[in-house]
Simulated assay, not measured.
Amino acid sequence: MTYELPPLPYDYKALEPYISSGTLEFHHDKHHAAYVTNYNKLVQDAGLAEHPIEEVIKVSFKDPSKAGIFNNGAQAWNHTFYWSSMKPGGGGTPTGPLADKINADFGSFDKFKEEFKAAGATQFGSGWAWLVLDNGTLKVTKTLNAENPIAQGQTPLLTMDVWEHAYYLDYQNKRPDYIATFLDNLINWEFATANFTAA
């Protein structure tokens, strides 16, 4: 069972001017593709190729001897999730049950935005900011390098990549500008709502 590199759910130019086609081509076709290629080779060698990637992520996270499998598998999965966490004409505010849950668990949508911005801005080095469901409660978390909520037993609803290759061509060292743009213009709240409903 080879894990396939999924195509982007939109055209390379679809997120402009917020994320350039050059960034998406480089990020998806080089970085994401390399994680998928490396993951498939490593799981084949380890006899894990027949297992779903989510299962391999959970198993390999707990086994230091499988760090390469975890890093490449989790990054392959994280990127697929990240592409779906954005959409052309995204941003704004969620509606329905997810909006109600955000208000209940964070106090307000503005408080959620504040926490999400802080998670992305204070993740030292490479990593991710997430909105997750953890034992019935919405939380904002951040993870280092390839780590993700699946490995922590949480349900991810959306993510923002804060590795430099996600934003450096467009924003240089201004990560806070990228984060604000992600929230205001890119977040796919329908995707997050679907994940919340399915949890």
Score class of each variant (00 low, 15 high):
residue 48 L to S: 13
residue 59 V to E: 07
residue 32 H to W: 05
residue 70 F to L: 14
residue 50 E to Q: 15
residue 34 A to N: 07
residue 60 S to L: 02
residue 58 K to A: 10
residue 58 K to F: 02
residue 90 G to Y: 14
residue 72 N to R: 07
residue 87 K to S: 14
residue 77 W to T: 03
residue 70 F to G: 05
residue 41 K to M: 01
residue 44 Q to D: 10
residue 91 G to L: 12
residue 39 Y to G: 12
residue 87 K to D: 07
residue 77 W to D: 04
residue 83 W to D: 14
residue 35 Y to M: 03
residue 75 Q to H: 06
residue 85 S to F: 04
residue 83 W to Y: 15
residue 82 Y to M: 10
residue 34 A to I: 00
residue 65 S to I: 03
residue 79 H to L: 13
residue 38 N to V: 00
residue 38 N to H: 01
residue 69 I to A: 11
residue 74 A to K: 08
residue 78 N to Q: 12
residue 41 K to R: 10
residue 84 S to N: 15
residue 39 Y to T: 11
residue 44 Q to I: 01
residue 72 N to E: 14
residue 59 V to L: 12
residue 53 I to A: 04
residue 70 F to N: 08
residue 61 F to S: 05
residue 45 D to K: 15
residue 89 G to W: 04
residue 66 K to C: 08
residue 89 G to F: 03
residue 87 K to G: 11
residue 32 H to C: 04
residue 72 N to Q: 15
residue 86 M to A: 12
residue 61 F to V: 00
residue 35 Y to S: 08
residue 31 H to K: 08
residue 80 T to N: 14
residue 48 L to D: 13
residue 84 S to D: 13
residue 84 S to V: 02
residue 66 K to Q: 15
residue 36 V to W: 02
residue 80 T to G: 14
residue 84 S to T: 11
residue 86 M to L: 10
residue 42 L to G: 04
residue 49 A to R: 06
residue 50 E to H: 14
residue 77 W to Q: 06
residue 88 P to H: 13
residue 89 G to D: 03
residue 56 V to M: 11
residue 48 L to A: 15
residue 59 V to D: 01
residue 37 T to W: 00
residue 62 K to W: 00
residue 91 G to F: 10
residue 76 A to Q: 04
residue 85 S to L: 05
residue 69 I to Q: 14
residue 70 F to M: 11
residue 81 F to G: 10
residue 40 N to W: 05
residue 67 A to Y: 05
residue 31 H to E: 09
residue 87 K to F: 06
residue 55 E to I: 04
residue 90 G to Q: 13
residue 73 G to L: 07
residue 90 G to W: 12
residue 86 M to N: 04
residue 91 G to N: 09
residue 88 P to G: 12
residue 63 D to H: 01
residue 84 S to R: 14
residue 57 I to V: 15
residue 81 F to S: 09
residue 83 W to H: 14
residue 63 D to Y: 00
residue 71 N to D: 12
residue 77 W to M: 07
residue 65 S to V: 09
residue 38 N to E: 12
residue 62 K to R: 15
residue 88 P to M: 13
residue 56 V to T: 14
residue 62 K to F: 00
residue 83 W to S: 05
residue 81 F to A: 13
residue 45 D to N: 12
residue 62 K to D: 08
residue 59 V to A: 13
residue 68 G to F: 04
residue 64 P to A: 12
residue 52 P to Q: 04
residue 85 S to R: 04
residue 82 Y to H: 12
residue 81 F to C: 10
residue 45 D to M: 06
residue 55 E to V: 06
residue 38 N to L: 02
residue 84 S to W: 07
residue 86 M to T: 11
residue 35 Y to Q: 02
residue 50 E to V: 12
residue 50 E to K: 13
residue 72 N to L: 07
residue 77 W to K: 12
residue 41 K to H: 01
residue 54 E to P: 02
residue 63 D to L: 01
residue 87 K to M: 14
residue 91 G to C: 11
residue 43 V to N: 09
residue 75 Q to C: 05
residue 33 A to V: 04
residue 33 A to Y: 06
residue 75 Q to I: 00
residue 60 S to A: 15
residue 50 E to P: 01
residue 33 A to F: 04
residue 90 G to C: 14
residue 67 A to I: 10
residue 65 S to M: 09
residue 48 L to Y: 15
residue 34 A to S: 11
residue 75 Q to T: 05
residue 52 P to C: 04
residue 85 S to C: 10
residue 89 G to V: 03
residue 50 E to W: 06
residue 51 H to D: 09
residue 62 K to T: 06
residue 33 A to D: 07
residue 83 W to E: 13
residue 57 I to G: 10
residue 64 P to W: 05
residue 71 N to P: 00
residue 84 S to E: 13
